[in-house]
Design a protein around this nucleic acid. Structure first.
Length: 397
DNA sequence: CCCAATATAAGTTCGCCG
DNA sequence: TGGACGGCGAACTTATAT
């Protein structure tokens, strides 16, 4: 194990509701609804929302009803991608070893540049200053010898903080924390651990590894035991290949009409396959998930003989997966389309056209180009021309 | 009663092959 | 022919994270 704390975990504070974002000219003075979840203005209970004068938290559906003309800053809004790209660029100006975890979080390994630029704390302060200057966003930085401890440290000092945990202090820092703080322990695992009488990370550390493995499975048991002793071998990888692409949509109201559900499925297939093609992938495995009114969820998938990126082909697979469920007017809340087993398409576009069936591949290509030129959704299958169902989200009830 | 969207990892079950 | 067994990939579920 390295004994010097050179791993940084940087977490933007209030990224999705940052003052700089709301101050953007195109948003100034307009009602803005932030977030996408059941409590769309998720931030009401947090420091950042108070600072911004946001008081109301409500489901996004209600927000749409109350303020239909508001600007909805959902997580996939392009403004966030812009800011994220700028921020990651700042990180990369300090070291190439930047591993983004999401739009607003990244790990950095500064071991190799410390002689060049300065010690990790100095680097962290420089980064915080630059992000504040350029984006008017505060961020919190955890510095430690491992990813895991760096991540907990940044949570610990949030907001607008910096916390370094030296190698010698790791266990003192870690052990009093609740098991929930272990990365990978969610509600289910917490419950299992609690039945074993384990409440703190120290408790987990002092439990025989075999006991943990029996209760949680081999891999998770061993992993947690290691983390509890501050052992985390994972390195900072600047790049990981993508493994799946998916698109999902929760309906404004539950649907039970097969025709309507298939229309949504086609729309989601469009969304997913377009991203697939943008990234130069084909997929061999097509999966769907269906969530019912009671929130239970099932999934089905099919692996094809040959990978494809053709909307038509993928939709037909998704459709047959759906129809094989033989749902008879069951109330459905969400469907999703997932593409897995991704393969990078070879250089030759000709080969793609020949092997994929010229007609559909060409029509996809033409549509992608048109959508790029005229904006997403300007060209779409005839089947989708009827009024989209999602707009029913904010009416009635 | 209410519970987003996207991605990853790992566990289980099952069928196929030798 | 019958069966136990192991390996393997596919299908599916569950858990977790942001």
């Amino acid at each position: 194990m390295r004994d010097e704390a050179t791993i940084l975990h940087i977490d933007m504070d209030a990224f999705y509701a940052s003052a700089s974002l709301i101050a953007r000219p195109e948003l100034r003075g307009k009602p803005v609804v932030i977030g996408a979840g059941p409590r769309s203005v998720v931030l009401s209970a947090t420091y950042e929302a108070r600072a911004l004068g946001i008081h109301a938290a409500m489901p996004v559906g209600r927000a749409r009803r109350l303020a239909p003309h508001a600007i909805f800053l959902e997580p996939d809004h392009e403004l966030y991608a812009d800011i994220s790209a700028s921020v990651m660029e700042v990180f990369r100006s300090f070291t190439p070893l930047v591993e983004p975890l999401s739009l607003d979080e990244a790990f950095l390994d500064v071991a190799g540049v410390r002689r060049l630029i300065g010690d990790p704390v100095h680097i962290a302060e420089s980064i915080r200053t630059r992000i504040a200057d350029e984006q008017q966003i505060t961020c919190s930085v955890g510095i430690a010898t491992t990813k895991f401890v760096a991540k907990i440290a940044s949570q610990h000092c949030k907001p607008d903080g910096l916390l370094q945990i030296a190698g010698d202090d790791v266990l003192t820092f870690l052990h009093p924390l609740p098991v929930k703080a272990l990365w990978g322990v969610g509600p289910k695992t917490e419950e299992v651990l609690s039945r074993l009488g384990l409440r703190t990370i120290a408790d987990v550390a002092h439990t025989p590894k075999t006991t943990l493995e029996r209760a949680l499975g081999q891999s998770a048991g061993e992993h947690l035991h290691n983390l509890a002793w501050g052992r985390d071998e994972r390195e900072v990888y600047p790049w990981e290949p993508e493994k799946s692409i998916s698109a999902a949509e929760t309906f404004g109201e539950d649907l039970d009409d097969e025709e309507a559900i298939l229309r949504e499925l086609l729309r989601l297939t469009e969304r997913a396959t377009q991203r697939l093609r943008e990234r130069g992938f084909k997929a061999r495995t097509i999966g769907i998930s269906v969530r019912f009114a009671d929130f239970s969820t099932i999934s089905r998938s099919k692996t094809l003989r040959d990978a494809t990126s053709v909307t038509h082909e993928i939709f037909e697979t998704a459709r047959s997966l759906y129809q094989n469920l033989h749902l008879d007017r069951v109330r459905v809340r969400l469907v999703s389309v997932r593409l897995e087993n991704l393969e990078q398409v070879g250089e030759s576009a000709e080969q793609l056209l020949l092997t994929q069936g010229p007609k559909w591949a060409e029509s996809d290509q033409a549509r992608d180009q048109a959508n790029q030129r005229f904006g997403g959704g300007s060209v779409r299958p005839a089947r989708l021309l009827r009024k989209p169902t999602r707009d029913t989200r904010d009416v009635s009830k």
